[in-house]
């Protein structure tokens, strides 16, 4: 018991850092993914801003980056990280790498949810003389909001996972802590308490996402 009391302050601190990393990467990666995913959707054939070249470029970009295992991605992006955040290690770099990886993953999630919008609704908006930009804001995104929330929930959980892996490059958080103290110094208490916290966090995120989506979709 006293052992647990000993690690508790660090556990809380590392949990807070993890949540911070997840939140910041979600903001950047979520926004980037929304832009690219919506871009893919509107520039495709028959889209409201049909642009075959842009659509093709975005597609190649997403298809190239998305399948890279995150652990390799983390190592490979170091030079770019140095350019953008000034470092190739540490928490800032971890956030940068996670946000970038999340952008490509989320882009596909967004695109997949947007293609399921009935085209008739967009046609109805076009018939009122609405501009493409207005249609994106007032029709496409609101109509897909429920499924998008579920898609983002899925993405957040993937980001939690990535934040733990990012411990490898010295990004702070539960992952780093579990590896340094739990794994390398053979302290199962640290490993198991980190695991427990992550499980609880993931459950809470999923429950929140489900609840929100249900409210939006009114069922």
């Amino acid at each position: 018991m006293s052992e647990l009391a000993g690690i508790l302050p660090t556990l809380l601190e590392q949990t807070a850092i993890m949540l911070w990393i997840v939140a910041v990467s979600l903001v950047f990666g979520g926004f980037g993914g929304l832009v690219i995913g919506t871009g893919l959707y509107v520039t495709r054939r028959g889209g409201i801003l049909q642009q075959p070249v842009i659509w093709w470029v975005l597609g190649v970009l997403v298809n190239t980056f998305r399948p890279i295992p995150f652990i390799i991605f983390l190592a490979a992006m170091q030079p770019i990280g140095r350019l953008v955040v000034g470092k190739g290690i540490g928490t800032e770099y971890a956030i940068f790498a996670i946000a970038l990886a999340a952008t490509f993953g989320i882009a596909r999630i967004v695109e997949q949810n947007l293609v399921s919008i009935p085209t008739g609704v967009i046609e109805a908006a076009r018939s009122t003389g609405a501009s493409p930009w207005r249609i994106i804001r007032t029709v496409i995104l609101p109509e897909a909001l429920g499924p998008l929330v579920l898609g983002y929930t899925f993405a957040v959980i993937a980001i939690v996972d990535m934040s733990a892996v990012a411990g490898l490059v010295g990004g702070d958080g539960l992952g780093n802590w579990a590896i340094t103290y739990g794994y390398r110094q053979f302290d199962p208490l640290v490993t198991w308490s980190a695991l427990l916290v992550i499980v609880v966090v993931v459950q809470l995120i999923q429950a929140l996402g489900n609840w929100l989506a249900r409210r939006i979709m009114r069922r």
Partner: peptide, 24 residues
């Protein structure tokens, strides 16, 4: 572009599947 959209506001359209926004 904009000049076409201005004219479109003067033409209403209704559809077989109604095409109402479910978010509104």
């Amino acid at each position: 572009g904009r000049r076409l959209r201005e004219q479109q506001t003067g033409i209403g359209m209704i559809f077989q599947r109604f095409n109402l926004l479910t978010s509104r």
